[in-house]
C-alpha cells in the first residue's frame, strides 16, 4: 500500500515517514500541500494520505476537500494529523471528508490502528467496486 505523507515540519515529517516505513508501508513524504496534490494527481496515486492540517500552499483540510471532489481520487483514505483538538476543529475536518483525525503529538498506536483500517479498506476496494457495478 502506498501512503502519501504531507507535513511541512521536517522533524514530524521525518519521524512519521520513519514510522510508516517501519510499519511496512511504501511511503512518499512531501513538505507542502501543493506538492501533495501534484503527487496525488500524478501516475499511481497513493491510496492513503496522511496530511498535516497547517501547511503552506494548500492546507490538509482544503486538500481533503479537493480529493473528495476529484473523480479518480474520491476514495483515497485521508488521515488528518493535527495539533488542533477543539470540537469545532474536529467537526470541520470531518465535514471536509477526512476519514480519521489523529492528534499531534501522534500516538503511534492510534495512527498504526488507523492505517490498518485504511489498509483493510484498500484491500476490499476491488470487491466493493465489483459489487457496485453489478
Amino acid at each position: 500500500m502506498r501512503v502519501l505523507l504531507a507535513d511541512d515540519e521536517p522533524i514530524s515529517r521525518r519521524l512519521l515517514e520513519g514510522l510508516l516505513r517501519h510499519w511496512g508501508y511504501e511511503t512518499v513524504a512531501v513538505g507542502d500541500g501543493l506538492e501533495a496534490w501534484q503527487l496525488l494527481t500524478g501516475n499511481e496515486p497513493p491510496q492513503v494520505a496522511v496530511l498535516d492540517w497547517l501547511m503552506p500552499g494548500l492546507d490538509g483540510v482544503t486538500l481533503c476537500r479537493s480529493i473528495r471532489e476529484h473523480d479518480r481520487l474520491r476514495s483515497t483514505y485521508v488521515i488528518l494529523v493535527t495539533g488542533k483538538r477543539s470540537a469545532a476543529d474536529v467537526a470541520e475536518a470531518y465535514a471536509a471528508g477526512v476519514d480519521a483525525v489523529v492528534e499531534k503529538p501522534v500516538a503511534h498506536e492510534a495512527l498504526e490502528e488507523r492505517l490498518r483500517h485504511a489498509a483493510r479498506l484498500v484491500r476490499a476496494r476491488p470487491e466493493l467496486e465489483e459489487l457496485g457495478t453489478r
Partner: peptide, 10 residues
C-alpha cells in the same frame, strides 16, 4: 509557536 509545539511534541 504551533509549529514549534508540533516539533517538540515528537
Amino acid at each position: 509557536a504551533h509549529k514549534l509545539k508540533g516539533a517538540v511534541g515528537n
